[in-house]
Design a protein around this nucleic acid. Structure first.
Lengths: 163, 163
DNA sequence: TTGGTTGCAAAAACTTTGCACGGTG
DNA sequence: CACCGTGCAAAGTTTTTGCAACCAA
């Protein structure tokens, strides 16, 4: 997967595209917040993000961060999460928009895949409920060949680490 | 999957076991709340749950519901979850494996669905990578009929609130 | 110019906590 | 009986909203 730095620009592009499609405006604040968000590797809380953007512009307030994150969520570039009883956090979801994940529960390796048939069915399901599908998240958890004990089966993680 | 009714007793058993292991007490309120929670099919918000238990005992307050749900989370019988920007909701642990979610990004309503074709394809995909599929998580995000501006289109959330 | 946008502060929503009383072990 | 749990209300947190000034298109 792309490193955090490398993905920032493409994601900014998607964000701007969404803004103009919706006739919304690009502003310094939105850009600053979105950029800081995309550059994060893992999960960010509102406070984290506010702290980051205030390094650049100390006058930014919570409201703008909340509003921008809401926009990012609407266009599928961010996803709200909550682990346990902790506070709400956001994660970059842009890279999950067009491919899905296959995760080995043994070695934790994550493979990405795409499958048109599944996407088509997802669309059908959404339509059958009267919904217009915007994005999706699909995660498959299973055992990789090695973990299954297949002789010669390789663990995708090990195979990759050699490179 | 076990029907909601069928699983209540075993889960109550686990809960009581946890309580006694931790030297905590069983009380009418805890039982009432836990039972109502386990009997739910999908997701429950604190408010839903409070409403349910108040049918039986109108003097129960938020605090007790929060405290009980915290206990249930600690012992792994409940999981806090958050879809989009909506409020925190809880679901019965282990209940996520067998249905998927369709979420409106406008009104935050969550519908559950099952689709055998999708599941079959997921299995195929996993197999094509040499994986043995154990479980999955699929979330579809879109706009409900009303949010799409369809005249007469109803928001699932509103439709539900009438009942 | 015409809206959408921002920052601030106030309001609302959501959770947690302190305390006196009540109930379980 | 000792102590944990409960309900209530108050306190804390987190998130949203109203509004006048501002800024991008």
């Amino acid at each position: 997967m792309a490193s955090p730095e490398a993905r920032v620009e493409p994601l900014m592009g998607q964000f701007h595209e969404y803004l103009s499609r919706k006739q919304l405006k690009s502003t310094k604040q939105r850009d600053l917040i979105a950029r800081a968000f995309f550059a994060q590797d893992g999960h960010v809380s509102i406070d984290d993000l506010l702290g980051l953007v205030r390094e650049d512009n100390s006058r930014i307030g919570y409201a703008t961060v909340y509003r921008t994150l809401k926009l990012l969520t609407e266009c599928g570039l961010a996803a709200a999460r909550q682990f346990g009883d902790g506070q709400r956090i956001y994660e970059v979801a842009g890279d999950t928009a067009h491919h899905d994940h296959l995760i080995c529960i043994e070695c934790q390796h994550v493979l990405e895949f795409e499958n048109e048939d599944i996407e088509r069915l997802q669309d059908q399901v959404a339509r059958s409920f009267g919904f217009n599908l915007v994005r999706h998240k699909l995660e498959l958890y299973g055992l990789c060949p090695k973990a299954r004990g297949i002789k010669g089966g390789s663990c995708p993680r090990e195979a990759e680490e050699k490179s």
